[in-house]
Amino acid sequence: MANDNKLGAPEGYTIKKSGPALRIISTILLIVWSIINLYPLFWMIMLSLKNNEQVNLTHKFGLPAGWPNKWHWENYTNPELHLERIVTYFKNSVIVTVLAIAIALVAAMMASYALMRFNWRASGAFNKMFMLGITVPVQVSLVPLLITTSELGITGSRISLIIPYAAFALSMAILISNGFMTNIPKELDEAAYIDGCSRYGVFFRIILPLMTPAISTIGIYSFLQCWNELIIATTLVTSEEMRTLPIGIRNLVGTNKVDYGLIGAGITIATIPMIIVYILMSRKIQESFIAGAVKG
């Protein structure tokens, strides 16, 4: 081994390749951590297929007693699960999240253009100010939002969630957008100006088309923030039909303290669409996330 390495290296040096032992240990650790990540999901699905009797007979690995003959699939068709409500919550969450991301995206790209492509003295200060926003917690706007929206009579409406979600996703979106925009050569702008394009023309014809890779990256970071948001949604949304998925599921399960299998079925149904999307797009999601980490 040592001799082999010496061949390619300068005299007196050796390359120590990571040995098989390290590789095996790493793989084992990774497998253990993967199991820790997957097991709760497995346990959740098992829970959703049990009746109360099986739930109370604790089984080490979470399998229902009497499996594989006694899967209680009827948990999923039980009318007390209120499937139609879960569908409504899901729809609300999708609408709120998508619109919030769209607003944050447009506002961020426009702001980036103003910050990165114009020479003006205060651009650095404005940029720093937006970056401070990354650490501002949603908690701070809670009571003011509650008061303001109730004065406007829009507490709990979709717009009362969309605007705050967009605002709290904005700083991160600007940070990522700046990173992507620096990679677009300024010569392109110059060429367009010579061809008679205005500032607005350059933004719409040159910058926006070249910023499409930023969309998925900003999208994934904003999504993680908006989709799970609980504090604002719990405070503002009071009506059943406007509930987003997190508060809807919490409420649905909270009112059902007796049937554990149903709880399992409820949270499984709320999770499955996300998992399917993730399985289909995991590569794209990870690459977009990574692009944000490198550019940010």
Partner: peptide
Amino acid sequence: IKGERFFLSVNFLPVLISTVVIGLLW
């Protein structure tokens, strides 16, 4: 490492699952 893509995907999974679901599950 072998299975790099798989491990990345599995380890990122809890981030994507709703915190409410994780709470209720735990």
